[in-house]
């Protein structure tokens, strides 16, 4: 197996683990970690394609993705702090006021 194929498979695996975390867990912080893991998988895919195709644009996209992920986690976690203040829990099966 070549290096590129191994890293592509690894990025697919990381994306799937992130998605699985998002689907199976009820704890919102762990779900946010799953989203971070999916973003990491995309970064790995970008870097691997940049390595295979001998480009640097892929690595620059990673720079932008990391910035957006940092902004997303800052906003997401402050929303979580508010949810905890209002509901006393951050489990998705307990915070159901908008379900109707």
């Amino acid at each position: 197996m070549e290096t590129g194929t191994l890293l592509h498979l690894l990025s697919a695996y990381l994306f799937c683990m992130g998605l699985l975390t998002l689907l199976l867990r009820r704890n919102t912080i762990v779900m946010l970690m799953g989203i971070e893991l999916m973003l990491n998988a995309i970064n790995l895919s970008f870097v691997t394609f940049a390595h295979e195709l001998q480009q640097v644009s892929g690595q620059l996209q990673v720079f932008f993705v990391i910035t957006i992920a940092a902004a997303e986690s800052a906003v997401g976690l402050s929303i979580l702090v508010n949810v905890y203040r209002n509901f006393g829990s951050i489990k998705t099966n307990l915070t159901t006021r908008m379900r109707g």
Binding site: T3, L7, N43, V47, T48, A50, H51, Q59, V62, F63, I66
Partner: peptide
């Protein structure tokens, strides 16, 4: 794999 800047950023 030689992406040193991305490694440091990560």
């Amino acid at each position: 794999i030689g992406a040193h800047f991305v490694a440091a950023l990560q």
